[in-house]
Design a protein around this nucleic acid. Structure first.
Lengths: 334, 334
DNA sequence: AAGATTTCCGGCAAAATTGCCGTATGGACA
DNA sequence: TGTCCATACGGCAATTTTGCCGGAAATCTT
């Protein structure tokens, strides 16, 4: 009876936020993406109950919508949502971004670090090295001058906004190709001789309100210095799961992304097989992405506090430029 | 079929690690504490299946043990366990500690921070203030001189080990009184005018390999300075759940703990009621504890990197002394 | 030592979940 | 306009989970 209520609430929450009718199939898909493994049939059963309770309304052949009564029910149960869990923010951002792989236009999700111009310039060589060795998400970035805005923040005077592409962008691109991606956790990936070996620390997305990679970086637990010098270090990485049938398509899309400077896929596992010590759910494959915030971690390692925000906002793809231009553009801002 | 396997594995994992027979009741209890809500009957059903498969052995009237075959089964499935989740470490420490509330003796679980002697001395006034205003776990602590050992670590030369009582000790004490405590998450508790208002960030214990409070402190996200000066700040706190029938007993034990300098209970909710915006499972009550690592956070806030380890080891209760002796004892070590 | 209480354990039935299938409906396409 | 196809949706049966009970062994109490 306990679990029944729980899944029922989950279904209601899923329905909430969509104004147009949503079918049971879509709901099931979204629940699966959120890690709630229930069958489509069960969802339908719960939905007819919810219909009877007046919480949802059935638009035959179209799907269900939530009623005002249902919204009220949610509001009571959702007090916890005040501390927004990261997984919710991830889903939201995935839907909001508009980047189109074919047209190479639209918005991508970015992380922003607010940092002193001269400080960034001092370390720009090492920051570029992180990009060059492939420990960053792609090869593109963007600098925001003081006064510019991204999401909720404005770059303060004397500072510069260092934007890197967030790996959530990959989720969004795959979603637009009909591939649902479940973001599981962020962690510290240990490297030995340039090869990833295992995760040494992990924080699951559905149990945290702050970005794990942000935390690892701010805590000074990364070791990019080692990673870019002798290949032995610890870098931020993210673990995701995909339906196992999608492997070919994902590899293909990954290559296309790589070609336009948005490559982040470190590794893709095989069906039902563990990858770097991480087991996956049945019928799924694991994927490891290198963290978008990675380049700026160099500064934290040298004991400079940097204000980094994962998932800070959306940016037009054409505003991004190659990391190689970083020193030149920084000089212009000084 | 998917979920069935899952809970089956969970049961097997729970059984693993205990050499003596464990009854289905105990297993269910442990699963509940781990957040897996299954009935005791279901556990028994799975156990007889496991018996048939040769994974477990039934010692009638005593409980089940895991067979070598079962261990093998686990080993295959449990690759993820290489990154030990914190919730597992919490359970382990809870069982290992031996503190007896009546006799006031035995071992308690402590956190250890390794810090420069002179640096600690410089901030000792503020550290004491955190204790005095009740934002620390109790009023007791311990200093370890260089060369002393706690758990896996040895205090290096020129440094001192600053040990505070970990709130897991409360779990252990309550467990010895037959009250099972489920540790849910660690977070940053916002204070306004000296009163806790809500959690602003949270990390669930069962989704992380590192201690949330350790992370918040290392990331410089706390604000103890504000907390001890004008009562507006952010302090590390932990959220736990108890069976709602235990409220009276817990309040009573909490008072006894307070009397011997181990008070940490900030707040206890009412049955089935949300506390500071955090809802609880049905039939349970919420409890908020202030973090044990809190006092040392002052140093991190002033940009001094401190190596802190939550749940670092066990310490005899009689080695603890009042925080008021801190400056005096530090001087002796310098 | 006898009785009371607790705990373990399996049987049984009810409830919940899932798989499978047939029907019906809306839209695509010739 | 007629046909085909995808999909929403409910019926039915199989499987899984849970609640409830009662017998038996173990432990505690007096």
């Amino acid at each position: 009876m306990d679990r029944k209520q729980k899944t029922k609430n989950r279904i209601l929450s899923t329905l909430c936020g969509h104004s147009e009718p949503v079918s049971s199939g879509k709901i099931t898909e979204m629940l699966h993406a959120a890690g709630v493994m229930v069958s489509e049939r069960t969802v339908r059963l719960h939905l007819v109950e919810a219909d009877a309770d007046g919480l949802t309304e059935n638009h035959p052949r179209k799907g269900r919508t939530i009623t005002p009564l249902g919204l009220e029910e949610i509001r009571v149960l959702q007090t916890v949502q005040r501390v927004g869990y990261l997984s919710a923010k991830i889903d939201q951002m995935t839907y909001r971004m508009s980047f189109d792989l074919q047209r190479r236009s639209g918005t991508v999700v970015v992380n922003t670090s607010i940092v002193d111009v001269s400080l960034l310039y001092r370390y720009s060589r090492e920051v570029c090295e992180v990009f060059r060795q492939g420990y960053a998400m792609g090869t593109r970035m963007c600098l925001l001058a003081e006064g510019e805005r991204i999401g909720d923040v404005t770059i303060p005077p004397g500072k510069v906004g260092f934007c890197t592409v967030c790996t959530i962008t990959i989720n969004g691109v795959l979603l637009k190709h009909g591939i649902p991606v479940a973001s599981r956790f962020g962690g510290l990936l240990e490297l030995r001789g340039g090869e990833p070996t295992r995760f040494v620390e992990v924080i699951h997305y559905d149990g945290t309100s702050i970005d794990p990679l942000e935390v690892f970086i701010r805590s000074g637990m990364t070791n990019y210095h080692g990673a870019i010098t002798d290949g032995n270090g610890r870098v931020g990485a993210s673990f995701r799961e995909l339906p196992s049938g999608c492997r070919e398509a994902v590899v293909h899309i990954g290559e296309e992304l790589q070609a336009i400077g948005l490559g982040a896929i470190q590794d893709i596992g095989l069906a039902d097989q563990a990858i770097h010590g991480v087991p996956v759910a049945p019928g799924r494959i694991g994927m490891i992405l290198v963290g978008g915030l990675n380049p700026i971690a160099i500064l934290e390692e040298r004991n400079h506090r940097v204000d980094s925000m994962a998932l800070s906002g959306l940016l037009e793809f054409n505003r991004l430029h190659s990391y190689e231009e970083l020193p030149k553009r920084l000089k212009r801002l000084m």
